[in-house]
Design a protein around this nucleic acid. Sequence first.
RNA 1: GCGGCUAUAGUUCAGUGGCAGAACGCCGCUCUGUGGCAGCGGAUGUCGUGGGUUCGAAACCCACUAGCCGCCCCA
Length: 427
Amino acid sequence: MRGTRDLLPDQTPLWNRVEATARAVFARYGFGEIRTPIFEATELFARGVGEETDIVSKEMFTWEDRARAASEKAQSLTLRPESTAGVVRAYIEHKLGETGQLQKLYYIGPQFRRERPQRGRYRQFWQIGAEVIGPQTSGSDSPVRDAEVLEMLASLLDELGIRDWRLELNSVGNAEDRVRYNAALREALEPVKHQMCADNQRRAETNPLRVLDSKDEADQEIINGLPKIADYLGAESAAHFAQVRAALDACGVPYHLNPRLVRGLDYYTRTTFEFTVTTGLGTQNALLGGGRYDGLSEMLGGPKAPGIGFAIGEDRLILTLQAQMEADAAASDGALEEPKMDYYVAPLGVEQNAAALRLAQELRRKGMTVEVGDGGFRVKKSFEAAEKVARAIVLLGEDEVSTGVLTVKSFATGVQAKVERARLFEA
RNA sequence: GCGGCUAUAGUUCAGUGGCAGAACGCCGCUCUGUGGCAGCGGAUGUCGUGGGUUCGAAACCCACUAGCCGCCCCA
């Protein structure tokens, strides 16, 4: 299917390493895993992500569920295009706010957007994300939370071995700041917008913030002359942002202020951020993105519950790591070695098959990785097969079975030795 | 959703109108309890799918599907 992929066993170890590292890092910061449905009511995304966003207006996989009884109405359902809305729905539904505790939740799972695929962009893609949310009394809107999340991401990327990441940081202000800034943008764009490209002319009308995001080269001069959001932050937003930056400075997390970083989901308020990389992703250079969403819970009919979260594009993280590994292998002239199993047990003759499987059983129960051949194979074939998958071959012929003294040959050293059956289990 | 490029063996690719190819990999033999090297031999296949042009199409044309690159946007 378009935009979907199969991940074969040569790929999945890296995926598992990434996910295990993420789980371990998140646990150190007190996050617990949440698993929410892969589909939700369409309404949730329309209200949470925003009716006018690209995601909701043209990228969702949506269908009408059948009404199963005359009294039941057909419901519009949608494969989740992101997970924050679902997590906040679960927060509301399970009344997690009533605990009074700050909730730190993370998730790993597939997301679905009906876009044209290209490198680093798939219709089913995976996100590793986390949300910090709770009633205000839990400190959920503290700048400490913003900085902690950003510092955690820096630690995670470092631990994964992602090199040359770059943190872009901005504050888009609270709801009131945004109203004033939008008005200022419209006013500034009015006399100059006719000089801009068609896309930007449209955005100037529908969503002036998006003009800031434009990469149209001819329009850059105009865009650079537009009012900066930083000048329109109210005292509260400005103080919050200053504290976030101070905490990042204290932790030694490098960042670049990017006054043009506006994000495409309607729920973002105040802190917004993106981590980008230059390796492996082509023009889709955003590795992860996120921000604060102080009003989302209320938008979804829940209690006031400020929050901040992010989503890592796992596919993009993997592409970056693979590109780095290829670059390293090319630089050191070394081929990428596939991990080998401990033993390949080769029965010599079909009469030894049962004994070979039994030997493998014992070795595996000791925790060793073992492959078993077939007595019908010629010895040459057994060696060839063994050398591909294992570090050593155990020959099991009539003699070995009757005496219990095995013939073991290491492929690394080329040394062949007779080994007591019992001693093999010690290794 | 828009534009460009691409699709031939397991893989990477050559093949611009006249017998479907190379390298690597795979299998067999030389070699029935010792692999890696070498020699010899073998199988690779809906030439993405469907239609059209032509005496003849892998090649030219159209449509579709999928991938890649870019735009939009985002992870």
